[in-house]
Each structure stands twice: as structure tokens, then as C-alpha cells.
């Protein structure tokens, strides 16, 4: 199955990002070009400080570029104001973080339900979707558990359920296995693979673990703010 004929879900052209420390400009990303097709599973790799997180944040719409074209899930992110961008994220992007970032005072069910609170869904519809998502990550028996009552692997699976519950097109994950042991890491990565293959989710995962990157179909290397060629993974 060759997916590269589909319209790109991420279209980046000449993208740049600089930080400013007082008046000093610190360029982080310079003139990036990248297209990710719908249904792609991309691993973004590169040394520490190369700008992986920065690029992921731009694509996910939680940071603003300094220049260039940034079109994701059919929207030109540069043209959206902050509130439009927030609602765009709610509908189009699921986030998976290294530290899971579950809300400690909410149980698994409530954590997963959070993104749905912003939708017009009724309570019953929300319950249905949350249970569907938690079934997918095999945690239906943990609905009422609070994050501190879950293992790291389970927490990350709740986070995955939270990321997919709103049925977004794009999943972004920044070092999703960075805090997990090998067994749990494999489980989480396999789950992402399943989401990609069976549910057609487009996934962008930042990692510097080559083993993790091998779960993806394509690998992109970032080096000092510049993208290397895209490599297809042979499985």
C-alpha cells in the first residue's frame, strides 16, 4: 500500500523559527520543507537541541513559526487566530507526551473525556466514545483509577486514549516512550502502529531511540535546524 499519492496532511515550505533572547535572535529551524501524506507514520529524529520538539509544536499548532508555509489538516495555521487555532487543535490533533501529562485529580475516564468537553456531544455520547477509546488501549478495567494508581505504561495508554477520543486526523508524540521501560515502550509503539494501520491515523513521533523509530514507516532527520532526506523504513 503506497500512501504517498494521497494529499499531504502536513505541508511545510521554507519554514523557519527563531527564539529571541532580548534582542538576540536564535534561529532554531531554517528553511524547512516537509510533506507528510495522510495516513503516514513518521519518526522525527535528531540530536538533542536540533529543534525536533520545536518543529513538532509548530505542526501541532501550539507554537507559531517565524516564517514560511505551514498547512496542516487542510488549514493554513498562519491564518488562524489563537482561539481558532485552539478549536482547530481540538478537532484535528491528538497529543501524546513523554510524561503522559494526565490530570492527577481526574480518573482515567475523566482524563480521556476532557477533549470531548469542548464538543457539543451529550453526556451519553461522550461516555460511549470514552469507553470506545479505553477499550482500544485495553484499559476498560481501569476507568475509575487515578493516574497515581496506574503504571507508567498504563498512564501512557490512557494518554493515547485521550489523544484519539476526539477522532483527530493527526497524532503527535514527543518522546512517547522516553519514560518507559523496553516492554512498555514496545507496547505503546505497537499501539501507535495499530492506530496507524487499522485506523488510518497520521502519526508524527519525535524520538532519538532508533528502535522506536523503526516502528514508523518513514524517518526524518533534523540536524541543526535543517531537515535531512526522508528515509523509508523496511519492515
Amino acid at each position: 500500500m503506497n500512501q504517498s499519492f494521497k494529499a499531504p496532511i502536513v505541508h511545510i515550505h521554507n519554514l523557519s523559527k527563531s527564539y529571541f533572547r532580548e534582542t538576540l535572535e536564535i534561529p532554531v529551524l531554517q528553511g524547512l520543507d516537509l510533506d507528510i501524506p495522510s495516513g503516514g507514520f513518521y519518526a522525527l529524529m535528531g540530536p538533542s537541541g536540533s529543534g525536533k520538539t520545536t518543529l513538532l509544536n509548530l505542526i501541532a499548532g501550539i507554537d507559531r513559526p517565524s516564517g514560511g508555509v505551514l498547512e496542516v489538516c487542510g488549514s493554513n495555521l498562519n491564518q488562524l487566530d489563537d482561539d481558532e487555532l485552539a478549536s482547530w487543535r481540538n478537532q484535528n490533533v491528538g497529543f501524546i507526551f513523554q510524561n503522559y501529562n494526565l490530570i492527577p485529580v481526574l480518573n482515567a475516564f475523566e482524563n480521556v473525556e476532557l477533549p470531548l468537553l469542548l464538543t457539543p456531544l451529550t453526556r451519553t455520547q461522550r461516555k460511549e466514545k470514552v469507553e470506545e477509546a479505553l477499550t482500544l488501549v485495553n484499559l476498560m478495567d481501569r476507568l475509575e483509577n487515578y493516574p497515581r494508581q496506574l503504571s507508567g505504561g498504563q498512564e501512557q495508554r490512557v494518554a493515547i486514549a485521550r489523544a484519539i477520543v476526539g477522532n483527530p486526523m493527526l497524532l503527535v508524540a514527543d518522546e512517547p516512550t522516553g519514560a518507559l521501560d523496553a516492554k512498555n515502550a514496545d507496547e505503546v509503539l505497537a499501539m501507535m502502529q495499530k492506530l496507524n494501520e487499522e485506523f488510518g491515523k497520521t502519526i508524527l513521533v519525535v524520538t532519538h531511540d532508533p528502535k522506536a523509530a523503526n516502528f514508523a514507516r518513514h524517518q526524518v532527520h533534523l540536524e541543526k535546524g535543517v531537515l535531512d532526506k526522508t528515509v523509508e523504513v523496511n519492515r
Binding site: 482561539d83 485552539a86 478549536s87 487543535r89 481540538n90 507526551f97 490530570i103 477533549p115
Partner: peptide
């Protein structure tokens, strides 16, 4: 995290 999920600042 809430804001990344789509909660607006307001």
C-alpha cells in the same frame, strides 16, 4: 496540556 488539547485561553 489543557490548552494543547484545544481549551482556549479564555
Amino acid at each position: 496540556v489543557l490548552r494543547a488539547m484545544g481549551f482556549s485561553a479564555s
